[in-house]
Structure formats: C-alpha cells, structure tokens
Design a protein around this nucleic acid. Structure first.
Lengths: 256, 256
DNA sequence: AAACAAATTTCGTATTATGAAACTAATTAT
DNA sequence: ATAATTAGTTTCATAATACGAAATTTGTTT
C-alpha cells in the first residue's frame, strides 16, 4: 500500500482488534492475529498507552481499551443535527427509488417538513425549498405515525387528545382504539404507511429516526402516486426506507 | 519521547484535533495546530482515510471524522456490566474515605447488594462476600432513594404503592408527599442521604449510576457510624461519592 | 487575468520504525 | 523442587520507512 503509513495502519488495526475483546488481549494473541512481530506490537501498544487509548491490566497483563475512543467518538455525534446527518442518506434513497423523500421533525401535535429531496426532470437530484416548513398533523401522516409508534403510550394519548381529529379522506383513522392498533402494527413492521389517509391518490411510507438516547427524533418518508407506489411494491420500498432511517439514526449516535 | 512511535502519535493527535471540529479541518489548519509539515499531515490523513476514520468533504475539501471511532468506542461499552465497570472505582473510593462502599442494583421494590468493598484491619483492601445478595427496600436506603430520584414519577409511585412502607426508625419517611419532596432535594444535590432512616447510628450517602441510555442502572454508597460520618463531613464525602458514581456511569457509556 | 491560498505530489535523505535475538518473569509439566 | 514452556519485555544493528523541502496542481480572490 503506497501512501499508507505502515505504523499508523498497524496501530489502528491493533485498536480495532482489541475492541472485540472486552477481557483484553495479550501481545502474542495480537501478534499472531495480525501477523506482526511481538516487539512491533509491544512498541505500538506502548504508544497507544502513552496516548491513553489502551491500558494493560496489571493482573492478567492483557491489553484492553480505555473509554477514550468512546469519548472521542461521542464528540463527533454530539454536534450533529438531524438535517445534516440525513443529507447523504435521503439523497441516496431518492436516487434509488426515484420518488420524493421527506424529512420531518415533531412540533407539538404536528410534523414539520425540514427537508425534501426530489428528482428533477434531467435525472439529476435537486433539493426543493417548496414545502419546507409546512406542517401536517401527526395522526394522519406516515411520518407522524412512524414517530408516534415509538413514543410512550401516555404521550401518544396526550397528542391524540390535543389534536383536532379530522377525517381528511374516507381512509383517515379517527377512532383512538383503532389508531392504537395501527401503531402496534407499525411497531411490528418497523415502518408506517399512509394509504391515502391524508390525500387521495397519494401513498407514503415512513420510518422513524432515533437519536443517541434511543428517543424518536424525526422520521423520513417516501411518497408518490398510488399508481407508482403500488400495494405490491410496498414491502420492497419499506425495506429501503427503514434501512435509510436506520443509517440516519446511526449517524445521530443511535445504538440499536 | 523514546519508545513512542512518532507517526502513530501524530496520527492520533490529528484524530483528536479533528474531533473538536464537526465542520472539519483543512490540512493547513491541522498542520499549524500541531506544528507538523503539510505533507506529513496529508500522508497521515491519507492513512486515516484508508482505515475509514476520516473522510474528505468533496465540496469544502475539509477533513472530518466518520462514525467509525464512535462505533469502535461503543463496542467497548456494550460488553461492560456494572460490577466490572465499578470495581476499580469503588476500591479507590474506599481507600480514599476508608469507609464501606456498597454497589447495588434494583430488583422490583428492593435494592440488591452486588458488591461491597471494605478496609481490612491491615489497611489492605478486601472484598467481602458477606451481605452480597442481601435485599433492602428502595424507599429507606440512600442508594434506593438516589435511584428513585432519577426515575419517572409514575414509576416511583408504582414502586411506593407496591412497597410495604414500614417505620424502621423514627426517622424513616413514610409519607408519600414528604418522600417526593425528599427526591426533589436529592435531584438538586445529586446525592441521597440515609440519616439513620434504616438503622439507628448508621448514616449512608448514595449516588446513582446511569447507563448509556441515560437510565438509572444502579447506585453506590458510603456507609458508616454517625460518629465517623458526621453532619459536617457530609458535603465533602458526598462530593467523592458523586464523582465515583459519575466515573462508573461514564464507563458504562453514560454521556452526561 | 494575475495573484494568492490551499491541497496535493514527488523525491532524495536520514531519521525512524523494524524485527531478530536476548532477557526476564510467570506458569505448567516432570 | 526443578526443568521446560509460554508470555512479556528490552536491546540494538539495519534498512526500510516516514519525513519534509520543494514543486505542482487546483481553486479562490482581487
């Protein structure tokens, strides 16, 4: 590998190897696993200890990681907001499915659109300012339901009670018990569907985004006309949406 | 620094530096901050990119960290249990204060002792098997109250209702409202006191331990006779107990 | 369009990391 | 109890490796 600094490459390999062993690893183990000389491993470990990434257990003499890597890693996550973290992932999702992707967060009983990615005619991607900032109720959208499904039951009830439940189409769910059953189904599947509940002829598939505390932070959705987003395609599309939402969650520090 | 591998030292310094800048850093910035030559920085960054720790933003050309460090760091945390994570810290606390240190977790309405560190006559440390596994109610112990103070109010109420509230000493709190006020005080102070509420002549100071999800996972306490643990000393001791509990929380991946 | 700033690449050199071997300590077998 | 084995540590001569000066490319600002 030309251009790659050997000792750095090796040192990082050692870190990666040790990270798999909570009990720690001995020099010989490491040396054999990585095909490095014992003294080389010893020297590199010395450097990692000097930098505070590794400690040697004084009883077993095994080398184990400290929490320094964890702390460093956290700093990256802390400063990230959902929009920034989503960017690359929503764009990729749009390109894959060639349908509009929305990113939303919650504000009270509503969802607020904070990003929208759609295909332009020329097959290049574009990010539309239109609709950003628009609000919709939680209870009648795929993104909203995806979020509610992973929130506390009490909070869901509060939001339901505070919402003005309106039958936007004949498919809108307006009964609380029925709605709770719907949420249970969403929990099972891991995604939510808006099957013309908000607007006739439009179908959406949404999945929740979790933050580093395991709390729902937002959601993404794919939406399009029922002619393109057919019942048959839903499973396939939902998988992509879920995968994308999970990737974003991971960027935010979710450990699921 | 003899024995320290220069390039590894430098590469890790670069990682540490970049971790402070979510927007990323340019080669010149890094080179100036660390007093390294530009080409050296470039080469080391190349290696870090090759290993997946860093990416270069194609627009700004700035170098930023990926989530790889975060993922590596998490692996260390995931396998840790509270007993293992506490070991070194509780021992250090005992040595510092020369009083018994307890580690507990919750089981229903009780706390269960899972570790105890006390000084032996000969001033060397020993870990007593005695009392490990013993149970006490949450509501009347410093550790229990420390845990309750950082749990949901509803859960606290449930536990209170499920507990058989007994006046163990004249100081035991048996009124719910008074108890909730006590918890509020504990939240303010960050530690809980058992001022002869469980046993006359014994005073304890407890602090909660949080896990990576920010949930209460257990608690530690210092306990001793009221002659040694005097009212005047409480502040000072509490600081030590809090610090210790916080260190353990950090080992478990708590990001507070 | 020129000047500037920043990133990247090249390359000769010597510093630096390397690994063989010797050494020490601890554990296991005889 | 002693030898043998296994694992960790230290030393040191060698050459491979990382280094940094300088040149080049790329992009931005005046």
């Amino acid at each position: 590998m030309v251009g790659v600094v050997q000792s750095v490459d090796r040192a990082l390999s050692i870190l990666e190897l040790i990270s798999n062993y909570n009990e720690g690893l001995g020099i010989t183990d490491i040396s054999e696993s990585l095909g490095l000389h014992k003294s080389t491993v010893h020297r590199l470990l010395g450097t990692l200890i000097y930098k505070g990434y590794v400690v040697q257990d004084q009883v077993s003499l095994k080398y184990k990681l400290t929490t320094k890597l964890f702390e460093l890693g956290n700093k990256i996550i802390e400063g990230k907001d959902i929009l920034e973290a989503s960017k690359a992932h929503t764009e990729a999702l749009m390109r894959r499915l060639n349908e509009v992707v929305h990113l939303v967060i919650r504000d009270g009983t509503d969802i607020v659109y904070i990003d929208k990615v759609e295909a332009s005619d020329s097959f290049s991607m574009m990010r539309m300012a239109s609709n950003i900032g628009r609000r919709s109720p939680l209870y009648s959208t795929s993104v909203g339901k995806a979020m509610l499904a992973f929130m506390d039951e009490e909070e869901v009830a509060e939001i339901w009670n505070a919402s003005k439940i309106v039958k936007l189409t004949e498919k809108t769910i307006t009964d609380f018990d029925e709605f709770m059953k719907e949420l249970e189904k969403i929990r099972q599947l891991g995604y939510a569907e808006d099957d013309e509940e908000n607007e006739l002829g439009v179908r959406c598939i949404g999945a929740p985004i979790f933050n580093r505390w395991g709390e729902v932070e937002g959601a993404i959705s794919i939406s399009g006309p029922t002619i393109r987003i057919t019942k048959e395609k839903i499973d396939e599309i939902a998988e992509e949406v879920k995968k994308c939402a999970y990737s974003i969650s991971k960027e935010l520090g979710y450990r699921g």
